[in-house]
Design a protein around this nucleic acid. Sequence first.
DNA 1: GCCGTTTTCGGCCCGACTGTTTTCAGTCG
Length: 561
Amino acid sequence: MSSNAEVASILYEIAEILTIKNDRFRSRAYQQAAQRITSLTEDVKKIRENGTLEDIPGIGKSISATIIEILDYGQSTILEELKESLPKGVQELMELEGIGPRIAMKFVTELKIVNIDQLEQAAKEGKIRDLRGFGEKKEANILQSIKDYKNRQTRFLLGSILPVVDEMVLWMKGSSSVNKIEVAGSFRRKKETVGDLDLLVASNNVDESSERFISMPPIERIVSHGPTRSTVYLKGHLQVDCRIIKPEAYGAALQYFTGSKEHNVKLRTIGVKLGYKLNEYGLFNRENDELVASETEEEIYNLLGMDWIPPELRENRGEIEAALERRLPHLIGYNEVKGDLHLHTNWSDGTASIFEMVEAAKSYGLKYIAICDHSKSLAIAHGLDEDRLSKQGKEIDKINKKLDDFKVLKGIECDIKADGNLDFPKSVLKDLDFVVASIHSGFKNDEKTMTERIISAIHNDHVSTIGHPTGRIIQKRSPYQLNLEKVMEAAAQQKVGLEINGFPDRLDLDDISTRKAKELGVKLSIGSDAHAPSQINFLKLGISVARRGWLEYNDVINTKF
DNA sequence: GCCGTTTTCGGCCCGACTGTTTTCAGTCG
């Protein structure tokens, strides 16, 4: 774990316990500090060495001391004391939907329940309903929550829920009451994983739209259902919150439900200072409750004294300050990437021919693709040796002759071997148009070894970009031990790109590293890593990461050509 | 715990839904 992640996770833990203890404002202070640390592109160790920790907004004397303690000793006295003071079991019980700090405390102190199993037992025996403020319904809800807890998946890959979203939107559009519809929340911000979906509907007939929503086919269970807001679980335990509003409040609602929470809190704080109140119905004059703006997001942001902020940036990572000072980046557009610089065919482990991939790329609107099949070391993926690579090159020549206004580049995803050398000699690589150099073995080596291995590849004259630079698989495999900053410095100096791999469970580099790469002067290549024609769509996910990493047109290699 | 073109002390974002209660606390987003 990087020191930034380590520090942030301890600060978050402190914040969590403070919330349980109902110390709201201190909790928020720690939470904000943790969030700042998470979104830093600089190493917190370095900032500490420079003695400028307290220059970070939200970090003062006390939290700064805590950070130093964490960096020096890997732990925090404050956290240890807080943990000590918290009755055993409270945190575990709070994992359940519908159980917050108050109820968890009540169970622990009044019923001596210290874990979920004991709670289940008590609920089944009907012991919960006798507590003050409880009844049979709450008891039944607890049993349901325990059931959900036992088979819940925490977060879903952004790329994996695209079909569900399409299906949902299509269903809702089948009702004439639906005026506008959009999935807001982390889906609209294009976070790499989403916990639930926030469906926003502008409706001419609220009741009809609401009924339409809860009669959607893939619904497994309705959790709550009111006139403006409903929550359901779809099959597979994906939670969907639907909010239904009047068309004239669409902008305000969209802004509100897109979040992030931290972004919105900051925005509303700015609103308060300007004499406004901001909620999902609009921006209001605080004095007389008069509506000032609600139809579009732009009006609201503008009245708050700033430029409209693209959803992908709304994480309170400095975007509000930038918008106030009118210096937001002009983000790379979803249609500005002209080629896919990393995809596979049935020459290695892809499912489709070169020509089929070309057809898919053309219908996606691309002007070129680089065929980057695996190299010989990756035998499991049927990697190409020199002979087959040369044959593939001839086939590409043939295909190019037939193509008009589209070009197929000869490429390779070449393994970086354990010693840092590439799988092919320079004499082979020099004839290729695009070389992605990637690591597919020896993930467990130490930081120094891995860093040197990649830097050695960066110094190979024929390497164009480093593929999936950290090797992480979301929710499955951590990044390699790597000094990413050194890798980035080398890449910048050698003018070698780093990849944003768009495959749903990779998205590697991630948003924060992407932003750091940009700051260090590295150019990024975006590749879908498609292994089938339909997967060229993953390019979009890569572009989302680029946008979340504040990239502009000129930061990305494949906007050109 | 942090912060200050109103403040170094006194604030700190805002509303919907549920289940219990009979006016509201708790949870969630």
